[in-house]
Amino acid sequence: MKRKKVEQISFSEKGLRDDVLESAVAIGIPEGTAGAIAEKVAAKTAVWVATRAVITSDDLYRRVAQEAEKYSADLAYVYQNRGKII
């Protein structure tokens, strides 16, 4: 049987910050607040990622949800449900 090819991507703090910002704006958080939240969540997550050699995208979303929970339960919910809508 053919082994499934695993897609590998490297972590980008800027990419995560933009993603959190878009998600926050999408759920109605004002842009200024969303920017501040995105900055903090991305920075904290980057510190956590730096301590690990390899992580899965699920690990990353769980961690982002954990960090986002401090600022917005709705934003955390978005990351808890990433890839689980359909």
């Binding site: 910002l21 878009e22 998600s23 926050a24 704006v25 999408a26 759920i27 978005v78 809508i85 359909i86």
Partner: peptide, 17 residues
């Protein structure tokens, strides 16, 4: 539910951008 789920994804992605 598939059409509704995909619409939610579209909404979420688009409202952020």
């Amino acid at each position: 539910q598939l059409e509704l789920g995909a619409l939610l994804l579209l909404y979420h992605a688009s409202l952020g951008k």
